[in-house]
Design a protein around this nucleic acid. Structure first.
Lengths: 155, 155
DNA sequence: AAAATTTATTATGCATGCATAATAAATTTT
DNA sequence: AAAATTTATTATGCATGCATAATAAATTTT
């Protein structure tokens, strides 16, 4: 269909979504990453921060920084986890809850509009291809061999 | 197929590809962004830097920073464009050409392996869905309405 | 139970994308 | 042709993702 690579199409599409999400989030004073984090926090109970990383596909170290700035902005509070002296529980403030709702609207709208413009079959296939790509990468099907070959030259 | 949103799947997949590309690039001392830039530079003639942004889907301002660091690392040289006193022509150094080849290998391998694991029909459909998403965003089908509604509340 | 290991968190540095502001060189208007 | 506008570039600041290193608290080994 196109003369572009798979990685390019993925990148361009994701960046276009990210740009849109960030523009939207700016309207209510947050960012895309903050929105995703808010959506991963349970609005009712304390959320262990350990659960956020896996849920969001982010490293704990990246999250730590975002949580810090979210706390400074009054979106969340962090309390020690009584069940684990190393851990932290995250709570939404009322302000955070409000922004969570705003963020949710944007995500729901995006997903809704895309679903209106793509058949269910196409969408299932779309998910399937992404799963295939993820699988190939996590099973090292793509780069291990390449890495081995190259490493000998360079180290 | 999954209980995840379209944006989440896209993000997770792109990030997984990006992580893999960055790991690969690290093996030969570059990064994914540097590799993409190298691949967008014509290895034979001077490439006007204006042409890179659109080709890579990046803002000129983002590119400027990458080009600067690439020049410092000896991957490229920047010369004034004789045809436009504002502009710059980018040339690959021999070192840059070498890294361009390395980068090309990684991209080719990724695309090849994915194509081996996905039918042509699935791939075409995959591209089509991404085009649809891009189209919806660039035509403001997703956020304009939302923005209008929300802006009244906030400003 | 003491020692070794693992896990959760934070701080920092680097890379990179965006936005904004500044500057200089085209280009278009008047 | 002079003035106004647009375009290409760069510098900076902010956000965010990763990696690495440090620290403290579990957990597992011995």
């Amino acid at each position: 269909m196109k003369d572009i690579t798979i990685d390019y199409a993925l990148r361009a599409t994701w960046q276009s979504v990210a740009r849109m999400y960030n523009e939207e989030a700016k309207n209510f004073g947050t960012t895309m990453a903050v929105g995703f984090t808010l959506l991963s926090i349970d609005p009712k109970t304390g959320t262990p921060s350990t659960s956020l990383g896996p849920k969001m596909g982010m490293e704990a170290t990246s999250l730590s920084r975002i949580l810090k700035s979210m706390e400074e902005k009054g979106l969340i509070t962090r309390k020690p986890n009584p069940e684990d002296g190393r851990g932290v529980l995250i709570y939404l403030t009322p302000f955070g809850l409000e922004k969570r709702e705003d963020s949710k609207d944007v995500v729901l709208r995006f997903n809704e509009v895309v679903r209106q413009n793509v058949s269910e079959e196409e969408l299932n296939n779309f998910f399937k291809v992404m799963e295939t790509i993820n699988g190939l990468i996590s099973e090292k099907k793509i780069y291990t061999r390449n890495t081995k070959l190259n490493n000998n030259h360079h180290q």
